[in-house]
């Protein structure tokens, strides 16, 4: 039973660690399927974490924090759109720029407003998303296997976690079952055809970026006021890039995105658990291997050794109407 308890605790933390990845990867899914590369996910996540922590600290209201996080993330998305859609600039350069602006601005403003070395103030309890105990969690706790799984892994998360997993079928439905989704996917493959059909490529791509900003706002908010209770200097710590890796690993499809995020979250949780422990026969396995594993797996996938990852065809190419 000892091993089972360990497994339960690792699974629980895997879920918690995969939530920000999931929001961000779904955000990337929308923009990349519309043909806009989004390296700036990391920056959006960071900026929204900062905004949500500030607002939640000032107002003591978690939902207003979420709103601020989403708002700033959409603003970043729109700047990305202005550069890469309206001005046909390089999408990667624009993303890199936004990452820098977010990384710098959050610390500069944080220091100026809170004077705590880049931290924001401690968000009060009512300004955070606290964990929810699902009905019946205590009743089934003693049922073998299913009980602890329900009580400790599925129940006891905060509302954003459930929204994250709800967003997976919603994203699937939007992308594959609505007119907007069909057009969005088409514009990422062949914008010329969409334009010929009389639909504005720019407006469609802008909308895709707004959706991406919306979803990414949740991930930053989750980091700042659900997982912790303040914004901390460089809080996203490369999670935006892991999410990007997960998106590629999932071959730009919603349900595999969730599985990839869970896998990468699990690796992270497992690495934390393995820290300083030794494995029979192997001795102590360096944690760094687990940290590098998501990136290595993605490269192996990109090399074409696990199926083929085929990106949207028009990705990264600014659309120019005929002159």
């Amino acid at each position: 039973m000892d091993y089972f308890d360990i497994l339960i605790s690792i699974l629980g933390s895997a879920i918690r660690l995969s939530v920000p990845l999931l929001f961000t990867a779904l955000a990337g899914l929308f923009s990349e399927r519309a043909g806009i590369f989004d390296i700036g996910l990391e920056g959006k996540m960071l900026a929204s974490a900062f905004a949500s922590a500030c607002v939640a600290y000032w107002t003591g209201n978690a939902w207003l924090g979420l709103l601020a996080g989403i708002g700033i993330s959409i603003v970043f998305s729109l700047v990305h759109g202005f550069a890469s859609i309206t001005n046909r600039g390089n999408q990667i350069v624009s993303g890199v720029a936004l990452n820098f602006v977010a990384a710098g601005l959050t610390i500069v403003l944080g220091q100026a407003w809170f004077n705590q070395g880049g931290r924001t103030g401690q968000v009060p309890a009512e300004g955070r998303f606290s964990s929810i105990v699902l009905p019946g969690a205590d009743a089934v706790r003693d049922v073998p296997i299913i009980g602890p799984l329900y009580a400790n892994v599925i129940s006891g998360n905060n509302i954003l976690t459930y929204i994250a997993f709800l967003m997976v079928p919603v994203s699937w439905w939007v992308l594959y079952r609505t007119r907007f989704g069909l057009r969005l996917r088409a514009v990422g493959e062949n914008p010329g055809a969409v334009d010929t059909a009389g639909i504005s490529v720019s407006w469609l791509r802008y909308r895709a970026l707004i959706v991406a900003g919306f979803l990414c706002g949740f991930s930053g908010t989750y980091l700042a006021i659900a997982q912790s209770a303040a914004f901390i200097n460089n809080m996203s710590a490369g999670k935006g890039y892991i999410a990007l890796a997960a998106l590629i690993f999932a071959k730009w499809k919603p349900v595999p995105v969730m599985l990839a995020c869970l896998l990468f979250g699990f690796l992270d949780a497992f690495a934390n658990f393995m820290q300083g422990k030794s494995v029979p026969l192997l001795g102590e396995v360096p944690v760094q291997i687990f940290q590098a594993l998501p990136y290595i797996l993605t490269c192996v996938l990109l090399a074409g050794f696990i199926g083929i990852a085929r990106p949207p065809k028009a990705g990264g190419v600014p659309y120019t109407k005929e002159r």
């Binding site: 001005n87 600039g89 624009s94 500069v108």
Partner: peptide, 18 residues
Amino acid sequence: DMIVVIQGMVILFAGALE
């Protein structure tokens, strides 16, 4: 970290919004 902001702005205006 103000440098990082300036750097981002330079990349944005000299690069993406060239």
